[in-house]
Simulated scan of single mutants.
Amino acid sequence: MRIGLIGAGRIGAMHARLLDAQPDVAEVVVADVDPARAVVVAETLTRGVAAGIETAMDGVDAVAIASSTDTHVEYLIAAAKAGLPTFCEKPIALDLENTRRAIDAIDDAGVSVLMGFQRRYDPAIRAIRDRVVASGSRVPYLVRSQTHDPEPPPIDYVKVSGGIFRDCLIHDIDAVRYVTGQEVVSVRAIGAATGFPEIAAAGDVDSAAALLEMSGGTLAQLSGIRHDPVGYDVRLEVFTPDAAMSAGWGDAAAIVSLEPGAVAPADPFTNFWDRFDAAYKAEIAAFVAMVGGKATPAATHHDAYADLQVAAACDLSLSEGRTVYMSEVS
């Protein structure tokens, strides 16, 4: 199969390599707003070719969208009209209205879309999900999910990111929905900008937390910080009547135990590439399988909308200092 890839930046280049490694992919057609960058990425592949943005969807069997967020909606609509199965990095858009516009086009066309919430393909997180599903009616008591970045993103990015909930903690929102199989009923969010005044000046926070009430009765806690001095610390913990489970704990976990005799991590995770290497590989393999009619997406465009709704509710809760119910956000 021939796969069109739109976006040859940092994440696009990674997806290009992963697509190139798939046995069922005969050619990766790389396109970018910067044609020279598309050429550079294509030349690193064994089966890559560069193309212009305007022809990226011509003669391909599917398309992967890894361009800037502000282009996702139009590319998704174009892919839907062309009848192409699509992979799209999160988010579809930073607002619900434009996200809905893309979703309507996708649904009208009836094409399959896999959204880039790669944590659904993380082996440990999938194992937790399987254990929860296997337990049947035994609802989890509590879920804790966190994303602690080693360094804040560039301030120019912060200004257009949509804020910590829509940009960062939306992954945790999606992971909680995924492992519990429940939807969010209400949120209470708080945040602070104590370490980076430039983030506060940009209208965002550098530390955030939220309590989610889930539809099945489970409680969920989210936390996010833009600066973790040890490294990149993403963990998920689930407590059920049968088990206490975690994903992200291990020798590379970016946290130091002060228990007597404990050993500090020698090589903690410092970026999302390393932490989710297996997940990214499994995600692209699942996309190729979806194109071939052998798999269904773990995260769809409707999941992207539900996650964004929760992030928007968290923003509203943060700004107004109160519990927000999902019925208030549409």
Rank of each mutant, 00 (worst) to 15 (best):
M1I: 08
G4C: 10
A8M: 10
G9P: 06
R10P: 02
G12C: 13
G12Q: 11
A38N: 06
T44R: 14
L45V: 04
A50C: 09
E54H: 11
M57T: 08
G59K: 11
G59W: 10
A62N: 09
V63T: 05
I65N: 07
S67I: 12
T69H: 01
T69N: 06
D70Q: 13
E74Q: 12
A80D: 00
K81H: 06
G83V: 04
G83M: 11
F87K: 05
C88D: 11
A93F: 06
L96H: 02
I106E: 00
G110A: 05
D130A: 15
V133G: 01
A134D: 04
S137T: 14
S137E: 14
R138S: 09
S145M: 14
P150C: 01
P154R: 08
G163W: 02
I164N: 00
F165I: 05
D167T: 07
C168N: 11
L169D: 00
I173Y: 02
A175S: 11
V176F: 03
G195Q: 11
I199P: 00
A200R: 13
A209G: 13
L211E: 07
E213T: 12
M214K: 04
G217R: 08
G217L: 09
G217K: 07
G217Q: 10
G224Y: 03
R226I: 03
D228T: 09
V230G: 05
Y232H: 10
T240E: 12
G250N: 13
A252N: 14
S257K: 13
E259H: 13
V263K: 15
D274F: 07
F276H: 12
F287M: 06
M290R: 05
G293C: 04
A298D: 09
A298K: 15
H301N: 08
H302V: 13
A306M: 13
D307V: 15
D307K: 04
L308V: 04
E320W: 12
G321C: 12
R322H: 10
V324A: 08
